[in-house]
C-alpha cells in the first residue's frame, strides 16, 4: 500500500498548495490523478515520492510510516519509488552520458557490478538503441531523453512508480511507447503506479481508476 493521509503541503510562506489530500493505492494498482495545471498535483506527487516534506499529514509506504523526506528518508524507502518528471531536459544532469544517467542510481546505492546486466535489459525495454547510450542529453531529442529518464526510474526495480505528466511534452507515438514500457514493467513486477496528468482520455486508458483532484481534497471533509 502507498497511503497519503490528510496531506497539507506547500512552499514556505503563503498558503499551502495542497490541503488535506488523501489517496491510497493498493499494491499493484494503477491510479490516475487528474487535475488542471497549477492545482498542486505535482507537489502531492513529490510528497508521495518522498521528495517534499508535507506540513501536515502522514504517508505510509507498504505498512511503514514515513518519518523523513529527501535525504532523511531511509534509502530503502526512497528507492522503493521510481519517479519520472514532466520535462526530461530539466530532469537530467547535462554532463552525464545516457548510460551514466541510467546507471547513476546503481552507482549511488553501491551496486556497480549490476550495471552491464541492467542496462542490457533496460535499454531495449524503453526503446533506446546502443548508439544513443553514449550521447549526452543535448545530443538527443526530448522523446529519447524521456525514455532514458524512464529507464533510470526503473533501474532499481521499484515497487511503486510515480509518473508526473510523463508524456505531456511528447508526441503521440513516443507517449504510447513510454506508457507501454511502464505497463510491461508493471506486468513483470507487479509494481503500483500513480500517474499524474491533465489528460483524462490518457489517464482513463492507462490506469485502473482515475481520481479527480477536487474529490481527493474534498474526501476528508465528508
Amino acid at each position: 500500500m502507498l497511503e497519503l493521509h490528510d496531506i497539507t503541503a506547500g512552499y514556505g510562506r503563503g498558503a499551502p498548495v495542497v490541503r488535506n489530500a488523501t489517496l491510497a493505492l493498493a499494491p499493484g494498482e494503477s491510479v490516475g490523478l487528474l487535475g488542471p495545471s497549477g492545482c498542486g498535483k505535482s507537489t502531492l506527487a513529490r510528497v508521495a515520492a518522498l521528495l517534499h516534506r508535507p506540513e501536515a499529514g502522514t504517508v505510509t509506504l507498504d505498512g511503514d510510516p514515513v518519518r523523513g523526506w529527501r535525504y532523511r528518508a531511509p534509502r530503502t524507502q526512497r528507492t522503493a519509488i521510481g519517479v519520472v518528471f514532466q520535462q526530461p531536459r530539466l530532469s537530467c544532469d547535462p554532463r552525464l552520458r545516457l548510460t551514466d544517467l541510467i546507471a547513476e542510481p546503481l552507482r549511488a546505492t553501491g551496486r556497480r557490478d549490476e550495471i552491464p546486466e541492467c542496462l542490457a535489459e533496460l535499454a531495449p525495454a524503453v526503446g533506446l538503441t546502443p548508439d544513443l547510450m553514449d550521447r549526452r542529453p543535448h545530443e538527443v531529442s526530448d522523446g529519447q531523453l524521456q525514455r532514458a529518464c524512464l529507464a533510470r526510474a526503473l533501474v532499481l526495480r521499484p515497487r511503486w512508480l510515480i509518473c508526473d505528466e510523463m508524456t505531456a511534452m511528447l508526441d503521440a507515438s513516443t507517449a504510447a511507447a513510454l506508457v507501454a514500457a511502464v505497463e510491461e514493467y508493471r506486468a513483470a513486477t507487479g509494481a503500483g503506479l500513480l500517474a499524474v496528468g491533465h489528460d483524462q482520455v490518457l489517464l482513463d486508458r492507462w490506469c485502473d481508476r482515475t481520481v479527480h483532484w477536487k474529490k481527493l481534497t474534498a474526501a476528508v471533509h465528508e
Binding site: 526512497r78 519517479v83 537530467c92 546505492t109
Partner: peptide, 8 residues
C-alpha cells in the same frame, strides 16, 4: 530530485 529518489 531524481538523484535523491535514486538513493544518492
Amino acid at each position: 530530485d531524481a538523484a535523491v529518489s535514486g538513493g544518492a
